[in-house]
Design a binder for these strands. Structure first.
Lengths: 199, 199
DNA sequence: CGTGGCATACCGACTGGACGGTATGCAGGT
DNA sequence: ACCTGCATACCGTCCAGTCGGTATGCCACG
């Protein structure tokens, strides 16, 4: 049942190196050396360097989508579902911090068709998320004075940005942080928050 | 008073191409062709490809820092100063959307010493911003139940994320958007928002 | 049991081409 | 005569991907 440790080792090494030095600055040679295998072995399991990159994306996207579907299937009040989704995506993003770094930094290095597949799958996630917000708005939970795409961007911005500042060695625990960021987001979009503040 | 159109044209072309195809995927040859000059001309004004990249960063960082200083110097209640700063940084980020794309995507391609200079200047901005938040907290304006770095990250995440979703051709006007995002942020960090929401 | 046929897994030297950077040259202004 | 501003040809390096080859295991067949 072991996915031939070689392929696995290569992927692990690739994520680390890509995250640390960037995709373009990392040679296939470096990856295989770090993984303790040879170029021949690597090209036996992967078609190209591009393949390696896509593998990283594929794993992350599958995992997150899976989580999302599970949470929604579990059902419950929209407010709680949305909260659970937010917390989950932040937590998994923290678990996959290097992948996230690579993700946002190097997506444009992917060959065009794969790039659009990634985009498609991200849009999928986004749309499902949007439906939750919409439902919440219909129930009067969330404000409607700000366009939905802005509300959504406001959340994914946090997720995206994690890999730019969060350090697992820092003082913030991942669960607590997930709750705090979710709280900030939900407070911001709360219906009764509309149009307050100075000016 | 003209910064020798050549250097200017090159920079403009570079930003566009770097934003569209990435720094690593753009050859110096492509840049000079797009700019309508020759390689020799370019290397007459820039020391390296790296230099080109740093030029982009330098311009952006200088501009934003300048704005920040001006707004703070103007004085006024913390709440209004902070609001003005937020709106400004969002607006300038929209004005320099391609620069932003390049910025976050390719910072790691910079030579190490320059990378740390960029980091230093960003930290500078960050610290000044942090002081505003702190002052606001001292005045009881902003919540203190969430660590300051998280509050700050929550804002810069939005700024950062702009280049990933905002399109100037879209329905959102830049000024309005800046106000909406600022509003979402300020609502989230408002003192009387602490610990609300479902669950 | 052994032998031949075949597939999978892996090795590592090599190549072809791209690309950053440079060397050289030249025109025109002072 | 010399310097600035630029053009063009060229060089050295690096690197993704290839390719001929080997080792190992498996199955069939006599």
């Amino acid at each position: 049942m072991k996915e031939t440790s070689v392929a696995d080792d290569v992927m692990r090494a690739a994520v680390e190196l890509f995250a640390a030095n960037g995709y373009a600055n990392t040679s296939v040679q470096q990856v295989v050396e770090a993984a303790g295998v040879t170029k021949g072995a690597m090209y036996h399991y992967f078609q190209s360097k591009d393949d390696l990159l896509f593998g990283i994306y594929d794993r992350m996207l599958s995992l997150q989508k899976e989580h999302l579907d599970q949470i929604i299937e579990r059902g419950g009040p929209v407010g709680e579902v949305l909260r659970a989704v937010c917390i989950d995506v932040i937590e998994t993003s923290i678990d996959f911090l290097p992948e996230g770094t690579v993700f946002f930094r190097s997506m444009h290095m992917l060959a065009a068709p794969r790039q659009s597949e990634v985009t498609r799958r991200r849009r999928d996630y986004n749309d499902t998320f949007a439906k939750l917000i919409e439902q919440g708005q219909a129930e009067g939970l969330y404000r409607t004075d700000i366009p939905q795409p802005v509300l959504i961007a406001n959340f994914f911005a946090d997720v995206h940005y994690l890999s730019h500042w969060y350090s697992p060695e820092g003082p913030e625990g991942k669960t607590l942080l997930a709750e705090q960021l979710t709280d900030l987001f939900l407070t911001g979009i709360d219906a009764k928050a509309a149009k307050g503040g100075a000016r």
